[in-house]
């Protein structure tokens, strides 16, 4: 299949992209790597009249430390993030998860900003940045604003971004000294997660647990985190992983099965974050 007729605009700077968005309003859609949007457009599930290509904006491709955070430009590609030395050292959970997205070709094109802004609950990176308590920076006509990850993911394919805004940066607290675990459960390796669990462990706070595909948006397993804070063992705490979730109910993976997986995978991710070696395939 092929996309419906569209008008292609390429922005070379954030300002230029904002101008294009302002010009075309609701008719326009931002195109980063294109690996979330173009597949929908090819199946005619999306048909923007104008696509604004922001994938080449060089000022949005970087990974650098800024004080206590690692700042990741939104147009940083998964492959580049996964293989970045700074990211691997300072925010290893995010760097690792970037290497778990799709397949190598997808990672060569797809960007962290595109993945987060798409708001797909089955995507892995949103749960990871959520577990990391990252801050997302958006720029709009009125300037930049910071959005905590916890407030960014609003629902199914919905985020806190306004139609006239661009996600420009992801600020992830440095966590070189913290354990982490990521469990991605799929049938085939490159599939979207049936369920995923991202854990950022240890000090200075209690472990943070982000869940993939356990609701209309990535969510934190707050019941698990509370149980851990109250002194539960990882295995005990993991039993709470499905509390408050509303996972999709599909033939190959029912909601009940996903709830079960969430507990098993959370236990494993917690164990991994604590330095253990979980059983499983």
């Amino acid at each position: 299949m092929i996309p419906a007729t569209l008008s292609y605009r390429r922005a070379s700077s954030v300002d230029e992209a904002l101008g294009m968005l302002a010009e075309h309003g609701e008719d326009a859609k931002l195109l980063a790597g294109g690996h979330s949007l173009l597949p929908l457009m090819k199946l005619r599930l999306a048909a923007p009249e104008v696509v604004v290509d922001i994938g080449r904006i060089e000022e949005l491709r970087y990974v650098r430390t800024e004080g206590d955070v690692v700042a990741i430009g939104a147009m940083t590609r998964h492959h580049d993030l996964h293989t970045d030395g700074v990211a691997g050292r300072e925010v290893p959970l995010v760097a690792h998860v970037a290497g778990e997205v799709g397949d190598p070709q997808v990672r060569h094109r797809g960007t962290i900003g595109g993945s987060l802004a798409h708001g797909d609950p089955a995507a892995d990176l949103p749960a990871a940045v959520l577990a990391c308590d990252a801050t997302l920076v958006a720029r709009g006509p009125d300037g930049a604003r910071e959005i905590p990850a916890a407030e960014f993911f609003a629902g199914l394919f919905t985020t806190a971004l306004g139609p006239d805004e661009i996600l420009t940066e992801i600020r992830v607290p440095r966590a070189a000294d913290r354990g982490w675990g990521f469990e991605k459960f799929t049938r085939r390796r490159f599939d979207w997660s049936i369920v995923g669990v991202a854990v950022l462990g240890g000090s200075p706070t209690q472990p943070a647990v982000g869940l993939v595909n356990m609701g209309e948006a990535p969510i934190r397993a707050t019941a698990v985190e509370r149980a851990l804070a109250a002194g539960a063992t990882p295995a005990e705490a993991a039993e709470h992983a499905a509390e408050g979730t509303s996972p999709p109910d599909e033939p190959h993976a029912s909601a009940g099965y996903r709830r079960h997986l969430a507990t098993v995978l959370t236990a494993r991710a917690l164990e991994r974050a604590a330095g253990g070696s979980p059983a499983g395939l």
Binding site: Y8, R10, L31, G34, H35, L38, P39, K42, V51, D53, G55, H79, D103, P104, Q105, V106, H108, R109
Partner: peptide, 24 residues
Amino acid sequence: TSCGACTVLVDGESVKSCTVLAAQ
């Protein structure tokens, strides 16, 4: 974007050319 039959190198890296606009 599943099968990879359309894989080519763009600036040296593998991509699925069915999911890239020529304009990109």
